[in-house]
Design a protein around this nucleic acid. Structure first.
Length: 303
DNA sequence: CTAGGGGTAAAT
DNA sequence: ATTTACCCCTAG
């Protein structure tokens, strides 16, 4: 009935995102068929892709389609659920403080309104993915992480700055542990004030090429797709050559993300909706700019 | 096939 | 209780 449950790995999510950027949202079967992604997504069906994309959209953005009923006022239900995403600001500690010990008071790192987060899960995921995939014993330092992400994806102009900001933030909130300039994913039971929410992505990609005994039902098929939707900007991009489209889309997305982060940084106290609106606008502008202008050469490449 | 509505159930 | 992954079905 339901399903045996198989969490999507970050590789799969990345492949899906890259696939959407490359072929457009909705071309699930094409993405699946693309040798570029099939190595990662061969266990998923076109419907899985569609559903996953739906879930992802619903999460990050407001509501892609499902869960249309509820609105943004999700926080504070019965006292258990108030995570505090934005702990930045307040005290700007001067960078390095190497002692491998972070205090993390057991109660309320900072009061926080905790109502506007909905926007920046992306870079977080990228960082986690980078650390996970780099698999360096003591963790990875900022440069290594930056290099990894830059190689796998398209790096925004101010990426370095963003990354530093993010890293600092993640370390502050205990999602990452910083030791001697290296970052590790926080372990499940460490650095968690109370029972806040934790990354929960430290599973080690348990899926391998060999046929797993379970779940070999009716997967893989191959056919051809037709539609897509994402955004009007991306629609237009589809008329370009695949490479141009990929480059333009990648840049637009990267810039939109940068805009999101900056919007949040600048107006941390503003509503999430506000930031989202700005991001959407930035996205559109970036897309248009890229469209009519230069052909960026950078592409998203996945091995 | 795809979008999207609806649902079950496993994780958290 | 919510989130997440998968399934199913229908209309287009």
């Amino acid at each position: 009935m339901g399903a045996p449950k198989q969490k999507w790995t970050s590789e799969e999510e990345s492949a899906l995102k890259a696939g959407v950027v490359k072929h457009g949202a909705g071309k699930w079967r094409t993405i699946l068929k693309d040798p570029e992604f099939s190595s990662v997504l061969y266990l998923r069906s076109n419907v899985d892709l569609k559903d996953k994309w739906r879930n992802m959209s619903v999460m990050s953005n407001g509501y892609g389609s499902r869960e249309k009923g509820r609105l943004a006022l999700r926080r504070v239900q019965h006292g258990t659920k108030d995570d505090n995403p934005l702990a930045l600001a307040t005290v700007d500690d001067s960078d390095e403080y190497e002692s491998g010990d972070r205090p993390l008071p057991s109660s309320s790192v900072s009061p926080q309104i905790g109502a506007s987060k909905r926007s920046m899960i992306r870079l977080d995921n990228l960082i986690v993915e980078a650390i996970n995939n780099l698999k360096e014993p003591g963790g990875s330092n900022r440069t290594t992480i930056a290099t990894y992400i830059e190689e796998q994806y398209w790096a925004p102009p101010n990426f370095k700055r963003l990354l530093s900001m993010k890293l600092k933030y993640l370390a502050q909130t205990g999602k990452l542990v910083k030791t001697k300039r290296k970052y590790r994913i926080a372990s499940a039971n460490a650095a968690m004030s109370d029972k806040k929410k934790l990354p929960a992505m430290l599973r080690l990609e348990g899926r391998q090429t060999s046929g797993s005994p379970m779940r070999v039902d009716k997967k893989d098929e191959i056919i051809v797709p037709t539609k897509g939707q994402i955004d009007l900007e991306l629609q237009k991009m589809r008329n370009m050559t695949p490479q141009e489209a990929a480059a333009a889309a990648a840049q637009a997305v990267a810039e939109a993300e940068a805009a999101i982060a900056e919007a949040e940084e600048a107006a941390r106290e503003a509503e999430a909706a506000e930031a989202d609106a700005e991001a959407a606008q930035a996205f559109a502008e970036a897309a248009l700019k890229t469209l009519k202008g230069r052909n960026t050469q950078r592409l998203m490449i996945r091995a």
